[in-house]
Computed example of a mutant assay.
Amino acid sequence: MANHVWRYWLSACVAILEVFASPNTLRATWPNGPFVTSGRWIHDAAGSTVTYVGVNWPGSLDTMIPEGLQYQSIQSIVSKIKSLGMNTIRLTYATEMIDQYYDNDETDVTIQKALTNALGQDSGRAVYDKIIANNPSFNDETTRLEVYDAIAAECAKQEIYIHLDNHISKAGWCCSPLDGNSWWGDEFFNIDNWTRGLSFMATHGKTWPSLTSMSLRNELRIPLNNVTFASSSYSWERWYTYVKQGSSAIHKANGDVLIFLSGLDSDQDLSPVVNGTALTPGSATFSQGDFSGFANKLVLELHAYDNIFGPGPSNCTTVKVKLFNAGLKALTDEAENQFPVVLTEFGLLQNGTASQDPYISCLLDYVPSANAGWMIWEIGGSYYIREGTQDQDESW
């Protein structure tokens, strides 16, 4: 009997030690990161497949404060996202926020000052008072970065991944080929400030358990405000130079996060990357060997709105072929370079005709069947200010 009891307790102790010694068990706390990629899949630390399913939350417009907090609390907004079955928020920011931090002796701007600067004294105060009423943990000393911190903390509490997106350089509405934010070296797109901003946010986000990935840049596009500059600079060859530079900046600052690469034509084309063809006008091709030490951190992102398919696409085959050729081919064995792909923006006009638009039903059928991730544009109903109009409605 004594031997039986001894063997029982010995077995129990061994089982307990095995549980606590298991690396996967030790790292099983959500989000069970860091995430890595393998071919066309994203995996967590236990090797389980992760698929991003989420929504955009803009914070890169004039105030540089995530939108909508004058109407609801952070807790309420994240709870509603969670209730939809989503697991990701693509949280956007402007490089200008980090530029101002450094220009202000490494001190961030308070939300009260940011609102006053963007909306004026009276309107700024009125919106600020509403934000404080909904989010009573904020006060006159709360900064914009602390709002990001609060969102990250709530996302960790509710187990929502944060994908941090460098949306624009000079804060404002995005994206136009004439806005000076289109391409590296454009009027407001300072390359050194961009890499500094990526490094800063990657470092700042190391304290966020919810931060699992970051983008290099939203919707790279031809800078039509300077045709001479565009003709000499806008190319896949130049894209590759800066993608390697930005990726290295993020990985050096935070080796845990995935890094999303967007393509040309407002992120509607990644074909040379997927197909391994020349990055023109040069002859070099995309090589994961050029991302030494973090090639298993790279993800491709695409954008797809119905206007890219021309007027009234009614054939789902057309939608599928265009998306496949744009970059979803990376999810298949046909690709020269396989990657996970996430549709980080898609959407349609919310004017009562959505159910009549065949594009959206085609997209919603094809993207999940391809096992691609997706993030819809966007969660907010309006903006603090957009293109000079306060509380402008968001119709997409």
Results as ranks from 00 to 15, higher is better:
Met1His: 05
Asn3Thr: 14
Trp9Lys: 08
Leu10Asn: 10
Phe20His: 12
Ala21Asn: 15
Pro23Trp: 02
Leu26Tyr: 03
Leu26Gln: 13
Ala28Tyr: 04
Ser38Asn: 10
Arg40Ile: 10
Arg40Trp: 11
Trp41Pro: 11
Ile42Gln: 02
Ile42Tyr: 01
Asp44Arg: 02
Tyr52Thr: 08
Ser60Ile: 07
Leu61Ala: 04
Met64Phe: 00
Pro66Tyr: 00
Leu69Ile: 13
Ser73Met: 04
Gln75Thr: 14
Gly85Leu: 05
Gly85Phe: 02
Arg90Gly: 02
Thr92Phe: 01
Tyr102Ile: 13
Thr107His: 11
Ile111Met: 14
Lys113Trp: 09
Lys113Arg: 14
Leu115Phe: 03
Thr116Glu: 07
Leu119Gly: 00
Gly120Gln: 04
Ser123Gln: 14
Val127Lys: 03
Val127Ile: 11
Asp129Ala: 00
Ile131Val: 09
Ala133Trp: 11
Glu141Thr: 15
Glu146Leu: 11
Tyr148Met: 13
Ala156Lys: 04
Ile160Ser: 02
His167Asn: 05
Ile168Cys: 00
Ala171Ser: 00
Gly180Ile: 04
Asp192Phe: 04
Asn193Pro: 00
Trp194His: 11
Thr195Asp: 15
Met214Gly: 06
Leu216Tyr: 05
Val227Thr: 15
Thr228Gly: 00
Trp236Asp: 15
Tyr240Val: 07
Thr241Lys: 03
Lys244Phe: 01
Gln245Ser: 09
Ser248Ala: 14
Ala249Cys: 01
Gly255Trp: 04
Ile259Asn: 05
Gly263Lys: 03
Ser266Asp: 12
Ser266Phe: 09
Leu270Asn: 05
Pro272Met: 03
Asn275Pro: 13
Gly276Cys: 04
Leu279Phe: 08
Gly282Ala: 01
Ala284Asp: 04
Thr285Gly: 03
Phe291Lys: 12
Phe291His: 13
Phe294Thr: 13
Phe294Arg: 12
Val299Ser: 04
His303Tyr: 08
Tyr305Pro: 15
Ile308Thr: 15
Phe309Thr: 15
Gly310Pro: 10
Gly310Lys: 06
Gly312Leu: 06
Gly312Lys: 05
Pro313Gly: 09
Pro313Ser: 08
Thr317Pro: 12
Thr318Lys: 15
Val319Gly: 06
Val319Pro: 12
Lys320Gln: 14
Phe324Gly: 06
Gln338Tyr: 06
Phe339Val: 09
Thr344Arg: 03
Thr344Phe: 01
Gln356Met: 08
Ile360Asp: 14
Trp374Lys: 10
Gly380His: 01
Gly381Pro: 13
Tyr383Arg: 09
Gln390Ala: 07
Asp391Ile: 13
Asp391Tyr: 09
Ser395Phe: 05
